[in-house]
Design a protein around this nucleic acid. Structure first.
Lengths: 231, 231
DNA sequence: CGCACCTTTCGGCACGGCCCGAAACGTCGG
DNA sequence: CCGACGTTTCGGGCCGTGCCGAAAGGTGCG
């Protein structure tokens, strides 16, 4: 009877405080227990309990450094699950954005953000579409890079060697655009490259990113993306 | 703040009785409220409450026929989520099978079963591997059918027309084999064909299936699968 | 029409969880 | 060595929710 295990595992996500923490951790970085407690607006002692359960359940991994307790998502599979839950949770009645500040933050997130370790939002969709129309990515029969796509990554200095069980390319449902964007090893490598090469930078401390002028030039050059498409 | 929605949605899966029902519904068929109540070993009144919540949350769809209330999973996305939860729930310490009967049922399920609407277990893995080694399915750069793969389906009398948002091919993590098997529209079409053509039949009322002698012949003929590989 | 059968509504009970504050523990820096 | 800070443990209060039984709708069949 795996039902008991399934229920216990799902219960880890079935609390608003833990969900707030997990959504924050979707940026792929390690947070301290105190940061997560303040972010979720609960007492430190409460956060300790939550983090303990999430670590025990295999959702998070922890790393102790001195008096700090750093936690991060346990891996891509967990990140994918959180994204899927977030994507399926909404689709009921259309909801109006809460406040003006939330709407503004929402627009920045909708323009571009990281989704664990790859690009999402309008930016992620635009890049994925450009890869597809240029014959570097196939979406008609599944979701996979073409041989020309492998060359394109190699030209960027990114060697995509199969390692571990993570697929090279995978479609990740974008819940602001309602369409899939590139995830998997290729999506992670491309996002890392974009951040390192200065194509885009993080806004504040959240998951939102914005494309730099240099990034606009580079995207037009390597993928034929016009700056207008990113606004 | 989508955290509240995420938590409320996850809570739908965070109960053993509901999880038992959802796992049963993974066979893709419609069940009546009474059947699910008996299967989960709860009173009919309790089942009514659970089903009401699952339907309201968009996890199930219902269809009333006379004095019966038929429910089924709301769609492939929900099925995928349940499978993912089930797959990630276990991987802690290795667990020994409970009883002999459970072990026997487990072996039948491990040999072959349906996973919502496609084939899983050793049967699903074997078919997926055969498709891959024959160049009909690519897994190295993602998970997609090749052009030759499309022809192979057409030769079987299966026209794979893109319709809706469901991808043609998708990898679904098999939690008995720990490897992906073919899901998506192609996986569903192949499973339906296998059942219609008598390649395999359902065992009892569950999700387990077994390959018929005619099925062994057919699989050897169209995919070069030897019967030994299915045992 | 009346009797099964499936399903639903309603009260009431019990268990488990989430939360906090106070106090203790451990680490870092002066 | 002492104070500041991050984290943890413990106890207690509170709310949500799962469960059932009894009774009431509805539906179909004889």
């Amino acid at each position: 009877m795996g039902a008991r295990d399934l229920a216990a595992f799902a219960a880890l996500f079935a609390d608003e405080s833990r969900a707030t923490m997990l959504l924050a951790l979707l940026d792929g970085r390690a947070w301290t227990a105190g940061e997560l407690a303040r972010h979720a607006r609960v007492a430190p002692s409460t956060a300790t309990g939550h983090l303990g359960r999430l670590v025990a359940g295999g959702v998070l991994t922890e790393e102790r450094q001195g008096r700090h307790r750093y936690v991060r998502l346990a891996g891509p599979a967990v990140a994918q699950l959180v994204e899927e839950l977030a994507g399926l949770a909404g689709p009921g009645p259309d909801e109006a954005p809460r406040s003006l500040a939330a709407a503004s933050a929402g627009r920045a997130m909708a323009r571009g953000r990281t989704c664990y370790d790859h690009l999402a939002g309008r930016l992620g969709i635009t890049v994925t579409d450009a890869l597809t129309t240029r014959g570097l990515l196939r979406q008609d029969t599944g979701f996979a890079l073409t041989d020309r796509g492998l060359e394109w990554f190699a030209d960027l200095g990114i060697a995509l060697v199969p390692k571990g069980r993570r697929p090279l390319a995978r479609g990740c449902l974008d819940w602001t655009e309602r369409r899939p964007h590139l995830a998997g090893r290729a999506g992670a490598a491309l996002c890392a490259h974009a951040l390192e090469a200065g194509w885009c930078v993080r806004i504040g401390s959240g998951r939102a990113v914005k494309v730099t002028p240099a990034g606009e030039t580079a995207l037009r050059h390597v993928l034929g993306i016009e700056a207008d498409a990113l606004r």
